[in-house]
Amino acid sequence: MASAQPAIRVNGVSHQFGEPGEARYVQALLDTSLDVTRGELLCLIGPSGCGKSTLLGIMGGLFAPTTGAVAVAGKPVRGPMPRDLAFVFQESALFPWNTVRENVMLGMTFQGVAKAERGARARRALEAVGLIDFAEHYPGQLSGGMRQRAALARALSLETDILLMDEPFGALDEQTRMVLGEDLSVLLSRSNKTIVFVTHSLGEAVFLADRVAVFSARPGTIKQIIVVDEPHPRKPSFMTAPKFHALRDQLYGLLHDEIRKAMSETTQPRRRYGQTGPAETDGERV
């Protein structure tokens, strides 16, 4: 580990939203350090609001941490790094006004990929996720699972070494998640990509990850890292293996107290990315 340069190095990162004393003040992350090794799949798991998605946004340069620094492939992160890493967000991140193909091409447009090359790369990416027959569909015409395949295709088409995935299967039903998880494991074994994957699901974390970073309740920091020593691509049979259950139970034990702690807190962070625009109110009012 010490020999090779890490794909991503997170060094003493803390992040807060708002200022102390303000109603919206939240200390999301506290002094977090982490190395992501090349070619591994690292899962970030923790209770709601622990800052794991915030950390992912900071790794990708979507916004700057309050303190601390991140380096990707040795280069300090100062903004989005579309040549080095690609994001897969939750369901809503495909542009609903573009077809699947247009969505995939758009990322390449932003990066200035030559026009002639875009079509071929989009085709390859859509074939890799098995969506080539749905290229001319709009996101609204696809199932949730297909939409996430499309989002994955968009990220793959950028041909980056690193994928940052923020609860990509979070909005899907369990069966679809399992299938997509298997596909991702296959993809990983073929492509040698580095993947950081935020999830809520213990099973998903154990099934996918080479290492699982467990977060404490807010202010979040990494409590422990668990190694899952099982080669990719992983088979469904892994899910019934004793090793799987032992690891899952170990994770649950680590998380249980933190989840209780997080639930007893009253405030939820208003925005997950310190993003702009009016603060969204979550949940409905009666």
């Binding site: 925005r271 993003q275 702009t276 603060a279």
Partner: peptide, 8 residues
């Protein structure tokens, strides 16, 4: 275009 939320 989208100012920073912190400067509200």
């Amino acid at each position: 275009m989208n100012g920073d939320g912190r400067k509200n």
